[in-house]
């Protein structure tokens, strides 16, 4: 059966094309491009990506408006059924605002927009998304965000750490995130949110290809299924 992926575009998304290119590169199949106003998503989707950007101009809080858009109800239903959902940057903010992932993303502690390539430690190499890496491996992935400062209360942090749901951690904490957390999985492991942009590290021309393994691992198992 053909692999069907969808990249959701909100007004203000700007990394949607890069996301689609990354998915097509590893799967050989161009993902559907879905506009947020389309409340309907196909039933047989294999993979959903929420791209980076500034959905709804970051009004109210980053990701807050998108999280309450009709398409997100469709995404949430599929996530509950186990469909893999990857949220990058603004996509991560949308997933936390929608309650699909714990915590919240606040203004960077420095107050500055950060745009550079950073080192990440792979904390969990057992998930659908991170199985292509080794646990403890350092990878280099670009970040570009103003609101990437991950916050959750101590109980929540202890719980997600205990359950192995911290996927990535910053080697050097660039934005003030609690416990240096850069990426978080849901309890079932089929939803990943991360501030760094793996789709910007899939081609030697990007300056690095450390993001490729994430897409390869997530998509490979689905394409072969």
């Amino acid at each position: 059966m053909a692999f069907r992926a969808a990249v959701i575009t909100f007004p203000g998304s700007n990394c949607d094309r890069d996301m689609a290119v990354a998915i097509e590169r590893v799967s050989g199949i161009a993902p559907m491009r879905v506009w947020h106003g389309d409340a309907h998503l196909p039933e047989d989707l294999d993979f959903i990506a929420l791209p980076g950007g500034f959905s709804y101009g970051d009004y109210l809080r980053s990701g807050a408006m998108a999280a309450n858009s009709p398409i997100m109800r469709s995404v949430a239903r599929r996530a509950e059924r186990g469909v893999p959902v990857l949220g990058v940057c603004n996509g991560f903010q949308v997933l936390t605002e929608a309650g699909l992932l714990p915590g919240a993303l606040m203004r960077n502690a420095s107050q500055n927009f950060i745009c550079r390539t950073v080192d990440l430690t792979v904390e969990n190499s057992q998930s659908l998304f991170t199985g292509g890496y080794d646990s403890g491996q350092t990878i280099r992935i670009p970040v570009a965000h103003h609101d990437g400062n991950y916050f959750a209360d101590d109980d929540t942090l202890d719980r997600i750490e205990g359950e192995g749901r911290v996927a990535f951690r910053y080697v050097e904490n660039c934005n003030g995130s609690r416990r240096g957390i850069a990426g978080v999985l849901n309890s079932a492991g089929n939803v990943l949110g991360m501030m760094p942009h793996p789709e910007r590290a899939v081609d030697p021309a990007h300056g690095g290809t450390d993001g490729l393994a994430l897409f390869e691992n997530a998509v490979k198992s689905l394409v072969e299924a």
Binding site: L60, A64, P102
Partner: peptide, 9 residues
Amino acid sequence: DKLLANTVI
């Protein structure tokens, strides 16, 4: 609870 505030923070 649903929109105006994010009760996590």
